[in-house]
Design a protein around this nucleic acid. Structure first.
Lengths: 136, 136
DNA sequence: AGGTTATTTCAACGCTTCTTGAATAGTTGA
DNA sequence: TCAACTATTCAAGAAGCGTTGAAATAACCT
């Protein structure tokens, strides 16, 4: 993934409203949600929502399609995945501690990894393996 | 991890200079690098570097310590990991497609996460590779 | 065709962030 | 103590981003 696109995606994500947008849309998958209902769910004015929707779409994090008179938005899982992948590859490839901290949050949000000591998580591998237990 | 901290970390990451900083510092681990040498490596003016260093440190992505008359900066692997973890948890937990896209860039470098712990993970580097075995 | 609903575009305003240069504080070594 | 070096803080200006309200475009239903 291009660096500039990652920067754009990160910038798009670094905003409360837009993060809320992603959070709202993610569980809906490709089904997505029409803009009007999003505005209603998030309590946003239409122009403001449109602005953020456009920002996310341009950053490659959202997709839109027209259905009847509605515009349905859904998250671009590929773009989101590639963005995180860039972070993982570019920043963490040689640093298992980051992956360990990463997996901690996933297995349990105990916050115990705040120490960030040089000692890696003994169960680090197991933690990551859990990610594999996704639906088939 | 708190939402506001994630937002701050994402915002800090969404900047070319600061992403360069992370990339430069990551392979150095806890050893880090003194501010002066960072400025030299990146070709930045001292005040400008100090500004971005402070931004990253406040976002929980960098740590600093004094050594002699130098200030050594190193990345906070825990903070970085937790930030990515939030993204993964918050946005992708139920969406294996994101993880799949995520692993694409990573599978090529297999073995990277095998070092997640002193004792090698039974599944070895397959931990992340598992992401690829998601639904089609 | 007319009315209604849905969404986007436009322009203006305010605010935060970024950059730059000079000045300041702190530390080391003679 | 003095001189040299490192890094940060301060203040100013410029640039970009986000919000708001009104208007415009497009598609549907009667």
């Amino acid at each position: 993934m291009e660096r500039s696109k990652v920067l754009a995606a990160l910038g798009a994500l670094a905003h409360e409203t837009r993060l809320d947008l992603i959070r709202l849309l993610i569980p809906l998958g490709v089904a997505g949600m029409p803009a009007g209902r999003i505005a209603q769910a998030l309590g946003l004015a239409a122009p403001r929502l449109s602005f953020h929707l456009a920002a996310l779409e341009q950053a490659g994090l959202l997709r839109s399609r027209k259905e009847a008179r509605n515009v349905i938005y859904s998250v671009d899982t590929s773009g989101l995945g590639q963005t995180i992948s860039y972070l993982l590859n570019d920043c963490c490839s040689d640093h298992p501690e980051v992956l360990a901290a990463c997996s901690h949050g996933r297995v349990a949000r105990t916050g115990g990894c705040g120490a960030a000591g040089p000692s890696p998580d003994p169960q680090g591998g197991a933690g990551l393996a859990v990610w594999g237990t996704v639906k088939t």
